[in-house]
Design a protein around this nucleic acid. Structure first.
Lengths: 249, 249
DNA sequence: CTCTATTATGCACGTTTCTGCCTCCTATAT
DNA sequence: ATATAGGAGGCAGAAACGTGCATAATAGAG
C-alpha cells in the first residue's frame, strides 16, 4: 500500500469517525505505530487534521461523498462545490464551464434537480447524463485538450444566442485589483462571453488561486456576484466584499 | 510498443485502478522500471497523474467508459473497429457520431494520427484528448442522454457549415431495401445531415443489426460507401454490393 | 529506400525515501 | 508523584529514485 493511499485512508476514516487513535490505525492499516505517527504529523502539517495526543481529530465538517475523495488534493474543491450547490435552485438556466472543481459540483447536484444546463465541457455534459430532469445544452467548438472545453469562434457565436441565470465560472487566477485571468487567450474570450450573457456569476476559488495572475484577462473581479472560497483572510475578504461581491467562506 | 501508446495504457490502467505501482507496471508493460519512472514523470508534468514514491495516483474521478457496460457484442465491435481503422489516413477530415462501436474505433486510432475529427459525441471527443495531432471539433446541441450525442437544431445548423472526407456512422438498424433507420427522430435528422456533407460514408454494423428496421429513416442504404461487418451471408453481401457498397467482412 | 539525427531505452551506480526498531523523553491519569 | 502509554529522533536495511552513458529504435531528410 502506497504511503499516499494510506494517508487518504486515514482521512477517510477520520471523516467517518471524527477522531482516530494511532494504535488503532496501526492495526487497521497493518503498519507500525511509528509510521502512523509520521503520517499524522504530515497530515497535520498540511492542515488536513488536528494532531492530538494518541491520535488526531477531524478539522472541518464531514464530507458527504465517499468515492470521489480518493485524492486528498480534491478535498478543498469538493467542499467548495458543496457550498455552491446551495445557490442552485430548480428551474434555473445554468451556465457551467470546465475544470475539476466544476466537475465536482456537477457530481454533487441532486439527481432530482430540474434545470437547463449549458456547458462547453464534455466531461460536465457526460456527468449530467443521469439527471433526468436536466436539459443539457452543449456548446460546440474546437476542443481545447488541456482543459477539455470547447472554445473558438463557434463557441462564442453559439453563446451569443443564449442567456443564463447563473454562470458558474472555473477560476485559474483571480486578483481583486487586476481581475480574473487565465493562461490561454481563447479560454478568456469564451469565459468573458459567458459572463456577459449571465445575470449572475458565481466563482469557485481554491485558496491557492487567490491573488494570482496569468496572461489573459477575462474580466474585472467585480463582475462576480458570488465568490466561494475558504480560509480567506478578513482583509482580503473585505477587498472583494467592497466590490459588491457576496463572499462565501 | 510506442512510448505514447504505453503512456496511454498507463493512464487507462490508472483510470481503472486509481493507483499504479512502478514495479508492477514494469512487468505488465514489459519495459524496465526506469522507463516507467520516466513515463510517470512526464505524465505528472502534464498534470495527467500525481507522481508519488513507488508509483502514481489518479488525479480526477475515473472517466466512465460506457462501452464496457454489459455489452455482449464488445468483442465483435472491437474487431469491426479495428477493420475500420484501416480506412483512416492522415490528413483526413473525419465525421464520427456516437455509439459504443465508434468509441471503440476511436480508442484504437493510432496516437500519431494527424487529422481533423468532427463529432457530436462528448465521449468520443474526450477519448481523443491524448491525440496531439488531431484537431477535435465538437458539434454542440442538446444532449440526447440515451446515446450521449448532441442533437437538435444547433447541431444541424453547425453541420451545415462543414464538410468531411469520411463519415463514420453508427448503425442502429439497416435493411438493404428499407435503408438505415434509428429509433429517434432527432438522431435521424442529424445523421442524415452528417451523411449529406461527407464525401464517403462508412458504417460499422454488428451482425445483429443487419436486416432490422426502426421508426425513423436516415437514408437509403446505398448512401453508404463502406459497410463493415462480419459473418455476413453471401446473398446478403451481394445485396449490398449490388448497391455499389464496398462490403468488408 | 537509405542514411543520419534524434529520441527512447536499459544498465550501473550513487542517492534518497520509507519503514520498523530502538532509545530516551513527555504527557496524562490515578 | 509515579506509572504508563504516547511521541521525537536516530539508525539501518530495503526499496525506489535519478543520472550519466552506451546502445537500440525511431523519425526525418534526401
Amino acid at each position: 500500500m502506497l504511503k499516499e493511499e494510506r494517508q487518504q485512508r486515514i482521512l477517510q476514516i477520520l471523516n467517518d469517525e471524527h477522531k482516530v487513535i494511532a494504535s488503532d490505525l496501526s492495526k487497521r492499516l497493518f503498519v507500525s505505530e511509528d509510521t502512523i505517527r509520521r503520517d499524522l504529523k504530515e497530515l497535520d502539517a498540511q492542515g488536513l487534521l488536528k494532531r492530538v495526543h494518541s491520535g488526531a481529530l477531524r478539522i472541518g465538517p464531514p464530507v458527504v461523498d465517499f468515492s470521489t475523495r480518493q485524492n486528498i488534493y480534491n478535498e478543498v474543491k469538493i467542499r467548495l462545490a458543496l457550498k455552491a450547490v446551495d445557490f442552485i435552485k430548480d428551474n434555473m438556466v445554468l451556465l457551467i464551464d470546465g475544470g475539476t472543481t466544476n466537475l465536482h459540483l456537477v457530481n454533487h447536484l441532486p439527481l432530482s434537480l430540474k434545470a437547463t444546463i449549458i456547458t462547453n465541457s464534455p466531461p460536465i455534459s457526460m456527468a449530467l447524463s443521469n439527471h433526468k430532469n436536466v436539459e443539457v445544452i452543449m456548446i460546440g467548438g474546437t476542443l481545447f485538450k488541456e482543459s477539455l472545453v470547447n472554445l473558438g469562434i463557434d463557441a462564442v457565436e453559439t453563446l451569443n444566442t443564449m442567456r443564463a441565470d447563473l454562470y458558474i465560472m472555473g477560476i485559474y487566477n483571480i486578483d481583486a485589483r487586476i481581475g480574473i485571468s487565465v493562461p490561454s487567450r481563447s479560454e478568456a474570450l469564451v469565459k468573458r462571453k459567458m459572463a456577459s450573457i449571465s445575470t449572475e456569476v458565481l466563482a469557485l476559488v481554491t485558496p491557492d488561486k487567490l491573488d494570482t495572475v496569468s496572461n489573459h484577462i477575462v474580466c474585472p473581479s467585480d463582475h462576480l456576484t458570488y465568490l466561494i472560497t475558504e480560509n480567506v483572510k478578513p482583509d482580503v475578504k473585505a477587498l472583494y466584499a467592497n466590490q459588491g461581491i457576496t463572499v462565501v467562506d
